[in-house]
Amino acid sequence: MSKLPSQQLRIIGGQWRSRRLRFPDIDGLRPTLDRVRETLFNWLQFDVEGARVLDTFAGSGALGIEALSRGAREVVFLEKHPKAALQLRENLQTLQARNAQVWAGDALHWLAQHPQPWDLVFLDPPFNCGLLQPAIDQLTLLPGAVVYMEHETALTLVIPANWYERKNKTTKEFCFRLFEVQETKVPGTDTEK
Score class of each variant (00 low, 15 high):
Ser2Gly: 11
Gln7His: 13
Gln7Leu: 08
Ile12Phe: 11
Gly13Lys: 04
Gly14Phe: 07
Gly14Arg: 04
Gly14Asp: 15
Trp16Pro: 00
Trp16Leu: 07
Arg22Val: 10
Arg22Trp: 11
Arg22Gln: 15
Phe23Glu: 00
Gly28Glu: 15
Thr32Asn: 02
Leu33Trp: 02
Leu33Arg: 05
Glu38Pro: 03
Gln45Thr: 07
Gln45Ala: 09
Asp47Arg: 03
Glu49Ala: 12
Gly50Met: 11
Arg52Trp: 11
Leu54His: 04
Asp55Gly: 06
Ala58Arg: 00
Gly59Asp: 02
Gly61His: 00
Ile65Trp: 00
Glu66Gln: 09
Glu66Cys: 10
Ala67Val: 04
Ala67Met: 07
Leu68His: 01
Arg70Gln: 15
Ala72Lys: 01
Glu74Gln: 13
His81Ala: 13
Pro82Val: 06
Ala85Cys: 12
Leu88Glu: 03
Glu90Asp: 13
Leu95Met: 13
Gln96His: 07
Ala97Ser: 14
Ala100Thr: 05
Asp106Cys: 10
Leu108Val: 08
His114Asn: 15
Gln116Met: 12
Trp118Leu: 05
Asp119Trp: 01
Asp119Gln: 11
Asp119Ile: 02
Asp119Gly: 10
Leu120Ala: 04
Val121Glu: 01
Pro126Ser: 08
Cys129Phe: 08
Leu131Gly: 01
Leu132Arg: 01
Gln133Leu: 11
Gln133Ala: 09
Pro134Ile: 04
Pro134Arg: 04
Asp137Glu: 15
Gln138Phe: 04
Leu139Asn: 08
Leu141Ile: 11
Leu142Tyr: 07
Leu142Met: 12
Val146Ala: 03
Tyr148Asn: 06
Met149Leu: 15
Glu150Ile: 01
Thr156Ser: 15
Asn162Cys: 12
Lys167Ala: 10
Asn168Glu: 15
Lys169Leu: 13
Thr170Arg: 12
Thr170Met: 15
Glu173Asp: 15
Arg177Lys: 10
Leu178His: 01
Leu178Thr: 02
Phe179Ile: 03
Phe179His: 01
Val181Lys: 03
Val181Trp: 01
Pro187Ser: 06
Glu192Thr: 05
Lys193Asn: 14
